[in-house]
Design a protein around this nucleic acid. Structure first.
Lengths: 224, 224
DNA sequence: CGGTGTTAACTGAACGATTAGTTAACAGTA
DNA sequence: TACTGTTAACTAATCGTTCAGTTAACACCG
């Protein structure tokens, strides 16, 4: 009995997302997903070519959802230092608000070399990462950041601190709390630390080089 | 025909390490490992309780080997800044010298919440990480590092930059090289960047902080 | 209106392949 | 004899996938 047009498709995707996040690709069976979605297992093959294609649809849908959240950092504009701090807070927030992100993206990177997520990551590279890089470069041109750092490397350093903290969560819990769950507020505190640490790393080296000049440099970014 | 005492055991471990690193836990079969080790599959159950126990033996053996390499940083001593730079270089070197490390530890963190590696990581926490933390704290006491950073957070920031660069390798390749393999020397360059970036972040704040212009942006609890 | 044809959505049952794990036996050594 | 190391053969279960068929919705036509 056909129900609403392609409503089942969404329910399959939702069920698959939960299962794949919890159990991984090999650990999840088609029948588990079908059972969760209250749908016949053969229906998955009506909507998706095979198990791998279903997994790809789940992963790319998820990453696009996450990317949209982080991208909001650059929606309003602001000076480079503020944007950096805002990005760090937002990135940490996403990891906490989306518990599946850690395992879903982690496995995609480790097990599949980002095969399914390639398009989504490429889009992320062209938008959010590029904005981050440009923000750092802008700070360098304005003299508020030290100029002798590769802005792409600096952007990876920023992103990497938070990403590692969450991806390696069980190890971090051993390092910080003897294997027990982290005390409440630790992740926010670490996000604040990342902003602090990164802005300190970006600060101009010698204080005898004050450049309080008004920014006359390119500001071709920032549309409405 | 019984061969040398427990020689088969080592060959099983070696074969299992290669298979698990390449294909993961679920993706590897007992018979594949037995075939690689030129041994009957039932023999694996003579030496190890089950597949999970074999996996645990592989992972803990591997992490202990890696930990010993990184720990060499602190064998000779030196001033804090030199030790930090040395650690960054050595950590990057280990990721390059041991290609299996990325997948083996990555999966252990994501799929098993470090269940098998708990003892090894705990040992790492009590030795290498503790040394790293103490090195930073020592620099703070000596006045060569800024004092208002949590040394444990700072240590995670240091470790995390390199770890993320390698764990997220496929994503980094998209960010830096449009998905193609990174140009030769990039990993060494990034390791040098990590040392530079981290030491800059740890540097004491200059007496007259170059203020980010007079614009009153969201002023945090900066300037303790 | 009512009937007919088409198609999208969905199902039950099965297939062939593969799996981890078991068992009983046996060879070499002490 | 007793014990360690090793093996081939087997099993019970599970897997992704296929396929022939069913149901409901809708468009067209007389």
């Amino acid at each position: 009995m056909p129900s609403d047009r392609s409503e089942s498709r969404t329910e399959i995707l939702d069920a698959a997302e939960a299962r794949f996040a919890r159990q991984g690709f090999d650990g999840t069976t088609i029948k588990q997903i079908a059972g969760d979605a209250r749908v016949n297992s053969a229906l998955l093959y009506y909507y998706f070519a095979d198990k791998d294609a279903l997994y790809g649809a789940v992963v790319s849908r998820f990453i696009e959802r996450i990317a949209a959240q982080v991208a909001q950092t650059f929606a309003g504009g602001g000076d480079p230092a503020t944007l950096i701090a805002d990005f760090a807070a937002r990135q940490g927030g996403v990891f906490e608000a989306e518990p599946r992100f850690r395992k879903l993206l982690g496995r995609e990177l480790i097990d599949f070399d980002a095969r399914h997520a390639q398009a989504a990551i490429r889009h992320l590279a062209a938008t959010t990462f590029e904005r981050l890089r440009e923000t750092i470069a802008e700070g360098q041109r304005a003299g508020v950041f030290r100029a002798d750092l590769d802005p792409r490397f600096a952007a990876i350093s920023l992103v990497g601190q938070t990403a590692y903290f969450h991806f390696a969560r069980p190890a971090v819990e051993i390092l910080l709390a003897d294997g027990k769950p982290l005390p409440a507020g630790t992740t926010d505190a670490f996000a604040a630390h990342v902003a602090d640490f990164t802005l300190a790393a970006l600060a101009p080296r010698s204080p005898s080089r004050p450049r309080p000049r008004a920014r006359a440099t390119a500001r071709r970014r920032n549309r409405t």
